[in-house]
Amino acid sequence: MPSLKALRGRIVSVTSTQKITSAMKMVAASKLRRAQNQAGAAKPYAERMERMLAALAAAASGGPGAPKLLAGTGNDKTHLLVAITGDRGLAGAFNANIGRMTRARVGKLRAEGKAVKIFAVGRKGTDYLSHEFPDLVVDSVNYAGRKSINFADAQAIAGRITALLEAGEFDVCTLLYNRFHSVISQVPTATQLIPAPKPEAAAAEGVHAIVEFEPAEEEMLAQLLPLNLAVQIYRAQLESAAGFYGSQMAAMDNATRNAGDMIKSLTLRYNRARQANITNELIEIISGAEAV
């Protein structure tokens, strides 16, 4: 049985932990709102980019000199996995989910006899993956200490990926990130970036058959494709950021509740111990008095 003093100390310590977790929950909630707004604001651009690209790809498809970003290298030997995680922890299984997913993919691709390379985005993922697969991580980037990411960051990543592609470092590029499903649920998702998946029945608008291009399709694709890559990465990063704060909020909510339960049970034990002490003292006094 711990002493009264020890119990009191534990109650104080759990109470201050609870204060911290509930403050973190509030902070995560407000950051979540900001991240959601940013993700929402980026959506129109991505949607229109998709529409424009679909029109272009339909017009330029079949050409023998199709750009690598669209058609890939024609091989399927080396896979590049771009894993997007958060820069901080204390967000439940958020980062671990991406780590686990990446590990499973690496195992599967290796079993098929393919080479794997990893581009880690986010500090947590970089730490985990460079420990787990030290010889696979070819590049990494993190935004620790930054308030929010912007489009230029995504463009920088896209630029590095394009450079790797041009150097023939990989054939297929897949993006792994937490898709923001709702505040309490983030779904680890894999999206293939290169070669770009065929746009599904994009020409539904019909009119697009006779679109003019200025300059010609090929030249325009060469400009548009890197931009599109950046847009897709940007969208994934924003969703991941929103998901991170959602996950952190849920984790901190749980921690606050657990701390509350713990304080309750510690207080109960403390009061019982105190009562037992008093009873003991009374018994001593009474039996002393009776003995006289």
């Binding site: 424009m52 272009l56 697009h208 006779i210 679109v211 003019e212 291009f213 200025e214 300059p215 325009m220």
Partner: peptide, 17 residues
């Protein structure tokens, strides 16, 4: 990219850099 262009309603469909 290949010169300024003014667009009015019912312009022919095109994509311009």
């Amino acid at each position: 990219a290949e010169g300024e262009l003014g667009v009015l309603v019912d312009h022919a469909p095109m994509v311009v850099m």
